[in-house]
Write a protein that binds this DNA or RNA. Structure first.
Lengths: 132, 132
DNA sequence: CCGAATCCGTGACGATACTG
DNA sequence: CAGTATCGTCACGGATTCGG
């Protein structure tokens, strides 16, 4: 028998591990954990490092990650304000799996895009108007 | 310096690998790939195996995964209809990273839930009504 | 000047009903 | 059985404003 899904509790809709999967299986979480691995960073630098994320979404994501014990938040009473984030011990255990996912995305995106084009090609022949 | 994020193109908002990360860093994709690894499955069995997913979302997700070359679709002209899905070669390379993610969720959800409770505890002291 | 809160449009999600 | 269609809901995400 070739590894026919060995007792994955997570597949049950009632399993509480679902909630943690939903949190970590998310592109922003992946990129934040990748950026945060190595050294702690302040909010603005994180925002710059993770290209394209808005301040609101970054703040929300970070608060959820903090709530789940994956990152820790360090606020300084200064002016201008300064808040730093870093991975907790639990969060550091996430680095390897999420890094693997990020690497897969970088290594295989050309295959994905190629497949996508081929799929669209033969599904939308009406997309190319034949001599209008 | 300890591994300070070695040239991650994916962090650039313009990088096309972002699109593939968004597809795979998603709880439904993770569970579908996990279930599909090992043997091909027909639509209904997949729906049963992945607890809690609606038919519409499963169909949509499968179509996107097919479009991106991660699963292949095999439809039989029968009555009642029968459609089977299986991982492509590209999809099989996704199994290990996503399995690692699923395993992390199962192994660490108790820590996550504990952290969550502790966080909520000290943030919503009004949540516990004191002798109503 | 930095980080967070507010407002609001868009789109994903899920349930239900219907078709081949 | 395997989808598609339609619709209501709501979380996501962007732009803007506030606060110190």
């Amino acid at each position: 028998m070739t590894a026919s899904t060995p007792t994955w509790d997570i597949l049950q809709s009632t399993c509480p591990s679902r909630t943690s999967l939903a949190r970590i299986a998310n592109k922003w979480t992946a990129m934040i954990v990748i950026v945060l691995s190595g050294q702690r960073k302040r909010f603005g630098d994180l925002r710059t490092a993770v290209g394209g994320i808005s301040g609101k979404v970054l703040a929300e994501t970070l608060r959820e990650l903090e709530r789940d014990g994956i990152v820790s938040r360090h606020a300084y009473d200064e002016m201008p304000p300064r808040v730093e984030y870093e991975l907790t011990e639990l969060g550091r255990t996430l680095h390897e799996p999420l890094q693997a996912l990020g690497r897969w995305a970088e290594d295989n995106f050309s295959s994905v895009l190629a497949a996508r084009e081929e799929y669209d090609e033969q599904r939308i022949p009406s997309g190319r108007p034949l001599r209008p």
